[in-house]
Write a protein that binds this DNA or RNA. Structure first.
Lengths: 224, 224
DNA sequence: TAGATTGTTAATCGATTAACAATC
DNA sequence: TAGATTGTTAATCGATTAACAATC
């Protein structure tokens, strides 16, 4: 890859350009955030972007952005900004998430269809390799170019496809039993779009989507 | 409503004179987070919850949670925990978002339908009072019990219903022009589900949904 | 009571910010 | 060059954590 010589030749830091230590939670979260904006900027044809612009889109202070990035190498050009393409590669490398990851989607309702037919996940290297639904009537139908599978095949598919992430777009009542099955099958990250509070073992991470909470948060600053 | 006498005074104040101090961004974000879990817990019939349990569901340290809450009053009972109902009321009061807010939904595709038929927003006091779509064929059809309206009526509806939040579940290409119209109509908070980077005036807040980014973030900690 | 959990303190760590020289 | 923007420092602020007495 071309990444090595760009960052490597810049300065031979003792720490180097490869983050040996685990990133702090805050840094990882912010880098992911930058990546989102950069990906969108790339789609819109932008070639460079300044820390100031990144700041406006991410709501992260521009000094903080420069500081986050400069910790891993000198990626920017003074007076110009950052090259969008190269910064995307750099951040992906830092986050070690440049690869492709297989995910499984559960629930072929409106939300499931919306997810399957969008490329929000695909843009970040997540391939929806299987869609499941508990309703026998939906099994076999096509959603987003995929055949909807029976939940009974869960274990086999997780193993065959090396799935580590399960996206739960199912009714609240179905979420916990499904989560239990996914944990049993070896899935380690659950993305929960239902309203259930999921109980899982400590080695499993649950992320619960909360658009309304984000909205409340925004509203607080609007009202005050 | 009981909300008016508590939160109303803050809203009615001229600029600068707010009775209570504005919460820090971090506190407001965490309180919103607690509220989400409490709302779910309430639905599941829980009567009390400990800071330790809240910590497990929110990934916020339990000491931090007790510290956040005790800053506003002694809401808990030692040896027992917090009463779910009363804590919900308290946090809503603190966030001044206990009232009902009218929001408008744009786009009657899969995502729009998923949002309209779920109660993720309703649970937090957000009423979807209007659904718009640019496609004339969809205008007039029913989605989530509402008649889909023509985008041309936007200005009038925003004024009539007092809408401050617009949820954009539209194709990327349609997002910026729509955002411009919403800003013109006086909407101050945009919830963006498209992949567009929206340019808006400083008085308008854009929140871009980023499930894939959250996933990347979770994955980083799984991989390392 | 006895166990559990809050409310609170104090110490540490990381985030944020302003400022500015370096340099594209 | 001249303007713009990075990379970096230093100072401040807020978040996090462990620990524990209070008390339900």
């Amino acid at each position: 890859m071309t990444i090595g010589d760009i960052a490597g030749s810049a300065v031979d830091q003792p720490d180097g350009d490869v983050p040996t230590e685990r990133l702090s939670l805050g840094v990882a979260a912010r880098l992911s955030r930058y990546l989102q904006v950069l990906t969108q900027a790339k789609k819109m044809g932008r070639e460079t972007i300044s820390s100031q612009e990144l700041s406006e889109y991410t709501h992260v202070n521009s000094t903080q952005i420069r500081r986050d990035l400069s910790g891993f190498g000198k990626f920017g050009k003074r007076g110009v900004g950052y090259n969008v393409d190269s910064l995307v590669s750099q951040i992906r490398r830092i986050l070690q998430t440049g690869g492709q990851h297989n995910i499984a989607l559960f629930g072929a309702g409106h939300l499931g269809k919306a997810i399957a037919s969008s490329d929000i996940f695909a843009d970040h290297g997540f391939n929806v390799v299987a869609i499941f639904d508990a309703n026998p009537k939906k099994v076999g139908s096509k959603v987003g170019g995929q055949r909807v599978r029976d939940i009974a095949d869960l274990g086999q598919v997780v193993e065959d496809e090396g799935i580590v992430v399960g996206v739960l777009a199912v009714p609240t009542a179905a979420a916990q039993p499904l989560a239990d099955e996914l944990v049993r099958a070896g899935v380690r990250i659950l993305f929960n779009y239902s309203e259930a509070l999921l109980d899982v073992p400590p080695e499993v991470t649950v992320h619960t989507s909360s658009p309304a909470v984000d909205l409340l948060h925004a509203l607080y600053f609007y009202l005050s």
